[in-house]
Structures are given as C-alpha cells and as structure tokens.
C-alpha cells in the first residue's frame, strides 16, 4: 500500500494530540509514515506506533533551531523525494502551514490548508467564510500536501511496532537566511492546549478585564481558556489565547462564550464547535444566533454560580 507522510508535532518526544488525529486520517489513504523534524523521534516512536505509524523517519539538522521554517521545508522535500508518498499531512499550525506552503512550491504539488476532513480518495472538506460555507476539494497536481485542523476527527488507536529510521538531509545556504536570534519561552498555562481542548471557555470585553470567573469555570470543567480580540487588545489576556480570524481556530465539543458579542471575525474561529453556549447581558447579541443555549445575564453572576454548582457536585 502507498505510504502517507505525517509530519509530527512534538516537544521533547511528547507527541501532540492532533498528530494522532492525522495518523488516523492517514490510514484512510495508505500506510502512515511519521516524520519527526528535529530531536525526539526515539522518545515519540512508541506513541506514534500506537496510532499506526510503522515507520518513524527521524530528520535532524541544527538549522531547524537556528533559522525560521525554510530548513524544515527543504528537509521535508527531501523526505518526499525519498519516500514518494501518496500524500503529506500536517497539522494546521502557523509553522506547519508554512512548511506545507514551501514544500508545495518545492515539489510542485497542490496544497490544501485547514481541512476538517480527508477522505480515502484524498478529497477534503474545509469550512470557509467564517464557517458559513463548506468546500470539498481535491489536489490534482503532484503529491497532495494537506494541512488539517486540530480536533477534526477522533484519534483511533491501531497499534503497530514503530521502527525509527534516520534520514540524512542537506540544507542549502538559501534556507539559512531568516535567523532566530532570540527565543523567549512562554509560560505554560497548565490548562489544555486551546486548539486541542474538548471544552473552551472564552471571555470578551464583557469581562471588564477580570478573567477570574472565566478561568475558574474553565478549571472546573478541565477546559482551555480563550479570549476575543477586544479582550486581547485591551491587554487583559495574551494574544496566543485569541480565538478568531487572526487568532486560533477551535473546534471543541463545547465552546462557552462569556461577554463576547459574536463578531464575524470571532465566529470564524469557533463556529465549527459541536455545541455553543453564550452568556451575554444583551439579548440582541449576535452570538445568541449560534448558541445551543444562551443565557441572558451578567457573566459575573452566572459564571461563579455555575462554577460553584459544578464544584459542589464533584465533592
């Protein structure tokens, strides 16, 4: 059967959940082969094997850490030349989308980004125009390069033994131009990763700057915290938690929007959530049109009451 490359998202060998989803989708197209760009392949191998990757290709080069994106794309192009896969799947992160873009140019392939489904014939589904339209598309030139959004499918195990194979690559001078001269790690929130979480609780301008009630409810639910751009622009919450067109796209089982009006650019980032709850004191807020349940009220009363009830039920 044809091989399908899956580019692994991992940190120190700990594989991110969307990679397991990709492996699950890859099995519809052929035999998944995982590619780890950078250190961590040996540590990641057994987890990748759990989801059907019989082969883990380990590609390492110091340029991956020293320069932005281009070296990874060049390396991946060499993996594609060597493996001749039926398709390449990547997660829709900022970096991986860019790797995908550069790879498509390098190998002369068609590119589909932000797919929410990949079928066995290679056709994909995307939601566009802020989630208002659904598009089915298919690559018809070269090895299809497809990036898939996190939470698009449920990861299903299919255990095999994973063998790690080193693949040497050569990185040209042309890829060593955008140098990373400083990197300041960000503090982890200790909560689930926003794009991967099953539940997201987001706060907007209606929080008035106090995200305490939003965070407390999120913690009671084991959820991630999100924010609208208005909240981020006001400096109330970091930009990496922004949901929407210029932030993250999330597709959780449940999205709770508190004090968020529901502007089109915000909806672009959350409209595909399976269930949506809105808490807003304005009964006319557009967010209510999306909500499975809407509570018209002050979030500063509603959220703490809900959090207290959940905590009471737990104990």
């Amino acid at each position: 059967m044809a091989e399908v490359l899956v580019v692994v998202e991992q940190l120190d060998g700990v594989v991110a959940k969307p990679t397991f989803e990709l492996l699950t989708l890859a099995r519809r197209l052929g035999d998944p082969v995982a590619v780890v760009l950078g250190a961590g392949a040996d540590e990641a191998a057994s987890a990748l094997g759990q989801y059907g990757a019989g082969t883990v290709i380990s590609v390492q080069d110091p340029a991956f850490e020293e320069f932005l994106v281009a070296p990874k794309a060049e390396a991946l192009a060499q993996v594609v030349q060597s493996v001749q896969p039926a398709a390449v799947l990547l997660t829709s992160t900022l970096e991986s989308k860019e790797i995908a873009a550069r790879l498509a140019v390098r190998v002369g392939s068609g590119l589909i980004t932000d797919a929410t489904d990949v079928r066995s014939d290679g056709s994909t589904t995307q939601t566009v125009f802020a989630g208002n339209w659904s598009v089915t598309a298919q690559v018809r030139t070269g090895v299809p390069v497809i990036t898939v959004k996190a939470n698009s499918t449920a990861a299903e195990a299919a255990p095999v033994d994973a063998a790690v194979r080193e693949l040497p690559v050569t990185i040209s001078e042309a890829s060593r131009t955008a140098r990373i001269i400083k990197s300041e790690p960000k503090k982890a929130s200790g909560r689930p990763e926003l794009t991967e979480a099953a539940i997201v609780v987001s706060g907007g301008r209606g929080t008035g700057g106090d995200f305490g009630p939003v965070e407390a409810l999120a913690d009671a639910l084991g959820a991630a915290v999100g924010a609208s751009r208005a909240a981020v622009d006001s400096g109330w919450y970091p930009h990496s938690y922004q949901v929407g067109q210029t932030g993250k796209t999330v597709s959780p089982q449940l999205y709770i929007a508190a004090g968020i009006s529901g502007a089109i650019q915000h909806r672009a980032g959350m409209q595909t959530s399976k269930a949506i709850v809105a808490i807003n004191k304005d009964p006319e807020a557009p967010i209510f049109a999306l909500a499975d349940l809407g509570v018209v009220g002050d979030l500063h009363t509603v959220l703490p009451a809900v959090t207290a009830e959940i905590t009471a039920r737990k104990s």
């Binding site: 808490i279 009964p283 509570v295 009220g297 009363t301 509603v302 009451a305």
Partner: peptide
C-alpha cells in the same frame, strides 16, 4: 437554541 434570561438564577441553573 434555547435562550434563558438569568432571573433568580434560572440562567445558571439552565447552564
């Protein structure tokens, strides 16, 4: 969807 006004805690109960 269902829209519930939060009077007397009805909203948080519905949630």
């Amino acid at each position: 969807g269902r829209i519930v006004p939060d009077s007397d805690g009805a909203g948080s109960a519905a949630l």
